[in-house]
């Protein structure tokens, strides 16, 4: 039997596969250098311990693999922590508009603090409404981000809850979280299909997981869409109940040779390097869609080319397809 233990440079155990009832009497530890710390291998296989060559081979294989895994997870933690901190910062700062100065609030009793907030709402109901709508949008984003994290790291292990849903309402529900940002860039959202059609042609899907796919899609769209343009949604269903949802927009140029690479984890578009992002969104979209047996294709149209603030924008169509 082999067990592993990773220690940092202070000798503290970072992770360990040793069982709770581990008894070291039959086991001999052997330490390897790993990154800034050490990897301790415990084995009761005396034959293995006697063969120095095999142990060196184990060290050669384990060390780079474990260092790579460690680095991968550090990068993942950084990316998620960054997004959560951003959302948490926005929530906190916005709520301060109503409940400012927590230090002062701590010096009065709760009912007094509540009266101060109630008074603020009464004096300026529009500003209070603005705070509540903002908080609702960002809370929705937090939920989508947590769900992205689960899809990314647990994926197929997640249990699906598949039910028929109206795709128009589902999209509108997500779009509301991005309303302020699309409005800031003057991007109109136009539906070319009615609610009746979406209601009669419901799609069987896991609501939370598809929500997450669309959340990541719009989170990308709002960063790459050309300001002062239009985003158009079309929905068609053929006789075989095969649907196509097309989202057409003028957005940052995607090169033909990178379309497939956009779905890779960590890949960032050649023309998107200047825009904040971690290259996770498109991967989550593809994975979330695949979990629902749907697919997404990108169809760029280079005949339409517009420059906005030195960036080349083309007409990009994103086609989501699958069976109802």
């Amino acid at each position: 039997m082999i067990y592993l233990q990773k220690k940092n440079n202070r000798g503290e155990i970072i992770f360990s596969s040793l069982p709770r009832d581990f008894s070291s009497s039959n086991y001999q530890p052997r330490e390897f250098k790993l990154g800034n710390g050490t990897l301790v291998l415990f084995t009761d296989d005396l034959l293995l311990l006697k063969r120095a060559k095999i142990l060196r081979k184990v060290e050669e294989i384990c060390s780079p693999a474990l260092e790579f895994i460690q680095e991968y997870f550090i990068q993942q933690i950084k990316a998620h922590s960054h997004t959560l901190k951003k959302l948490q910062g926005q929530l906190k700062q916005k709520s301060e508009a109503l409940v400012e100065n927590p230090m002062l609030a701590a010096q009065v009793d709760y009912s007094h603090q509540r009266n101060i907030v109630a008074d603020k709402i009464k004096k300026n109901p529009e500003a209070a409404a603005d705070v509540f709508i903002y908080l609702q949008k960002r809370i929705f984003e937090v939920e989508a981000h947590i769900s992205s994290f689960e899809i990314l790291h647990m994926g197929e292990e997640l249990q699906l809850d598949v039910r028929p849903h109206n795709i128009r309402r589902l999209i509108l529900n997500i779009l509301h979280a991005f309303q302020d940002r699309f409005d800031e860039y003057h991007v109109r959202r136009t539906f070319k299909f009615e609610d009746d059609m979406a209601e009669s042609k419901k799609i069987r899907l896991d609501y939370k997981i598809i929500n997450t796919a669309f959340y990541n899609f719009f989170d990308n769209a709002v960063k790459y869409v050309k300001p002062y343009s239009e985003m158009v949604f079309c929905f068609d269903v053929d006789e075989g109940n095969y649907f196509k949802l097309r989202v057409k927009m003028k957005s940052l140029r995607i090169e033909k040779d990178e379309i497939q690479r956009l779905w890779e984890l960590g890949y960032r578009g050649k023309n998107a390097k200047q825009i904040d992002g971690s290259g996770v969104g498109m991967y989550v979209i593809k994975k979330a869609l695949r979990m629902n047996s749907f697919d997404m294709q990108i169809q760029p149209d280079y005949s339409v080319m517009e420059i906005y603030e030195d960036s080349q924008n083309i007409s990009n169509e994103f086609v989501i397809s699958g069976c109802l």
Partner: peptide, 8 residues
């Protein structure tokens, strides 16, 4: 990106 601290 917008951050509410500016309006605060």
């Amino acid at each position: 990106e917008t951050f509410p601290v500016v309006e605060n």
